[in-house]
Each structure stands twice: as structure tokens, then as C-alpha cells.
């Protein structure tokens, strides 16, 4: 069993297989489940993810606090009109990620990846890339297992909880998982995947969790958009051969340490950061009076 990125890389090289294959083998061993059933379960989750994206693009939804709604649709207009500054892939990835967060914020059905508050980044980005590179669902499912491997390492050595580690632990982890998955799907080595994951985590090191009125809406939705873009640029750097100066395991440990040193006000308590700006306080009061 691997707890560290270093162990994961060793296993990949010993068995001459990909990160996703190591993850699937480990899952089969640990839980005595046939690999075909494991892949099928991830397939089912990928279906739920895609349904969520579809749902978010049909019509704006009413979020719990009413702070967000329709952002994915607005962004897709620019993609469809070919006016997106980000281009097709990033434009779609950001739109899908934000759309999924809207489904989540309206108590719709999503797949935590790794959390509900960061559920848009991994599926949104992989869906945009699938449409561009015409990957099969099987390929995307392999990407999801690669992402899960990165997530388990972060879970073991730091945290994926906003209440423990701030937003870096949620959307940062999601972006790292996604960046790693993209590299494998683009045919790169496991080392490249870990460089991409390390870069993505470093890019948002220290990001606090400061939800307006305590809702998973603002700034969470936009940080899902940012997470999608972060995953894409981090993967792009790694695929270009740019390495993370600091190894993945050290970056994960640093993220955990930064998380622990964040004051409680900046860890999903809505008592610091954006959540205590005058406007956020006014919105919170309006919602309480509603």
C-alpha cells in the first residue's frame, strides 16, 4: 500500500504500470473486490458527474442561499460564440466546474471529488478535455483512478477538509488530482503526474476557506473555476517538461502544515476573510431574516 508519492512512483516503476493501474490493483487487494466491479462503480460515478454538468447547463438553479445561479450557462455562451478569452478547453472546463458547483449548492446530486465544495474541478476539466480529445469513458475512468491515488496521498499526509486546512485543502487538492489525471490521459509518465499535482497545490498554497454566510456558494464557485484553470495550466507546465522544484510529498506536507497554522476564523467557520466583509455581513443578515 502506498502512503507517499515516492512509494507510488516506485510501485509504478517496479510493475511498469500507470498510477491509475496501481490504484485499481490496490483497491482490488484491500477490499477483495474484482477490478471489473471497481471500474464499473467509477463508471457509474462518471455518469452522475456528467448528468450534473448537463443539468447545470439547462437552466439556472436556485442555490440554498440564492447567491449564485446560471454562471455556467453565461460562460458557455462565450464558448459557443467563440469569444472565450480562455479558448475552448479552458472556457468549457471553467464553465462546467462552476455549473457543477451550482448543482451542489442547490442540494442536487453530485460526486464529492474530493469534497462537495470542490466537486466541479475534476469532472468539469476532464469533460472539457474528453470533448476535445475524444477520449472514451473508459479512458476518463482511468483518469479518475489516477486522481483518486493523488487524493489518498493528500488525505493521509495532509487533509482535504476545509474545516481543517482551508480552501487549499479542498479546491487545491481537487486541482492537484485533476492535473495529475490529465498528464496520465495525455500519455505522460507517473513522474510528470506528480510534478503537475505539486505545481497545482503550490499555486494555491495558503488559500483560506471563507464562505459568505457560511454557504458553499461564494467564493467557492469561482474558486472551482480557478481550480479547473489551475489544473490545466499545471498539467500544461508538467507536460512541457517543467518540473516542480519541490517534490510532491514535501508540497503536500507543507500544505498540511499551512492548514494547521491557519486560524479557525479562516477554516470554514465564516468568521474571517471574505465572509466578514461589510457586504458579506449584510448578505448574511438578509439571509437570516429571510
Amino acid at each position: 500500500m502506498f502512503y507517499l508519492g515516492e512509494q507510488l512512483l516506485q510501485t509504478c516503476s517496479q510493475r511498469r504500470c500507470s498510477i491509475s493501474q496501481v490504484m485499481i490493483h490496490q483497491e482490488a487487494d484491500l477490499f477483495s473486490t474484482p477490478e471489473v466491479a471497481i471500474r464499473q462503480r467509477m463508471h457509474d460515478q462518471w455518469q452522475v458527474m456528467q448528468q450534473g454538468i448537463q443539468l447545470s447547463l439547462e437552466k439556472p438553479r436556485t442555490s440554498m442561499g440564492g447567491l449564485i445561479g446560471g454562471e455556467g450557462i453565461k460562460l458557455m455562451h462565450r464558448v459557443h460564440n467563440n469569444t472565450s478569452l480562455c479558448g475552448q478547453v479552458t472556457g468549457k472546463a471553467v464553465a462546467y466546474a462552476m455549473g457543477l458547483l451550482e448543482v451542489n449548492a442547490s442540494m442536487g446530486i453530485v460526486v464529492a471529488a474530493p469534497t462537495g465544495g470542490s466537486c466541479g474541478i475534476l469532472p468539469g476539466t476532464l469533460k472539457a478535455l474528453q470533448e476535445t480529445f475524444e477520449w472514451s469513458d473508459d479512458q476518463v475512468v482511468s483518469g479518475l483512478f489516477n486522481a483518486a491515488a493523488i487524493g489518498t496521498i493528500i488525505f493521509h499526509n495532509a487533509t482535504v477538509s476545509g474545516a481543517e486546512g482551508g480552501c487549499q485543502a479542498e479546491t487545491g487538492s481537487a486541482a492537484a488530482m485533476t492535473a495529475s489525471a490529465i498528464c496520465e490521459l495525455m500519455g505522460a509518465t507517473p513522474e510528470t503526474s506528480l510534478h503537475a499535482a505539486a505545481i497545482a497545490l503550490k499555486n494555491v498554497m495558503g488559500q483560506v476557506c471563507d464562505p459568505v454566510a457560511g454557504l458553499v456558494e461564494s467564493p467557492c464557485q469561482k474558486r472551482n473555476g480557478l481550480g479547473a484553470a489551475n489544473a490545466l495550466i499545471s498539467a500544461e507546465m508538467a507536460l512541457a517538461g517543467i518540473t516542480s522544484i519541490i517534490p510532491f510529498d514535501e508540497v503536500v506536507a507543507a500544505m498540511g502544515e499551512v492548514g494547521r497554522s491557519l486560524p479557525e476564523t479562516l477554516r470554514e467557520t465564516a468568521r474571517g476573510g471574505i465572509a466578514v466583509t461589510p457586504t458579506a455581513c449584510r448578505l448574511k443578515k438578509q439571509l437570516a431574516d429571510r
Binding site: P114, G117, A163, E217
Partner: peptide
């Protein structure tokens, strides 16, 4: 697979 908004 969960109803939103927060896994925790």
C-alpha cells in the same frame, strides 16, 4: 455520491 452542498 451525495446531495450537496458539503461532503463534510
Amino acid at each position: 455520491v451525495m446531495a450537496g452542498p458539503s461532503s463534510s
